[in-house]
Nucleic acid binder design. Sequence first.
DNA 1: TAATCATATAACCATACAGTGATATGTCAA
DNA 2: TTGACATATCACTGTATGGTTATATGATTA
Lengths: 93, 93
Amino acid sequence: MTHGELEQIAQHFRLLGEPMRLRILQALCQKPRSVNEVVTAVGATQANVSKHLSLLAAAGILTREKNGQCVYYGLKDPLTLKMCELVRSQLAD
Amino acid sequence: MTHGELEQIAQHFRLLGEPMRLRILQALCQKPRSVNEVVTAVGATQANVSKHLSLLAAAGILTREKNGQCVYYGLKDPLTLKMCELVRSQLAD
DNA sequence: TAATCATATAACCATACAGTGATATGTCAA
DNA sequence: TTGACATATCACTGTATGGTTATATGATTA
């Protein structure tokens, strides 16, 4: 594996390595939600949630769809939650 | 999922979110190696490698076995490498 | 157009932590 | 015991980034 690939993979893991972002992902596990919905779901600042959502979308972890004045973010790949589950079961040992 | 669980899962991902640590994991994918062997394999400082190995072992990602004056670290769970592969294939899209 | 709502961005601060050099600890051989 | 080797730890620096407040941008409605 090249250094560039490792850097990319690490970057991906790093994005998942933040509790607030995991909470955001959790809030999106059923269906896409607007920024405001996520804000109330996770109980954080609008600016903060917006920043995290942008990062996750830029990394290809979330989809982003604008509808009127609302922006809806959703999980792009169920694999992401699967990995969280894997880690959780691994930690359970 | 509780906040504590999320914090633990995030912590786990954060450990995988560092290129140097991924290189170390890669160096251990075949068989356990001593600290020095890893040092030469990844081309980093002894102090740095030792610190990373300790962190990974403390998190239960690596096994640690002392034999004479050498300490051998090895992958505890093949799942770890599987996740790296998953991410890599996900990024390939 | 003006007012309101939703989202994004900018500037800033504080903290976490990777990397380094020096040194401590522990183990073996001569 | 002394010296050489393997590993761990300490103190420190620099940097990346999460969170905050304030503001900008854009869309909708009256």
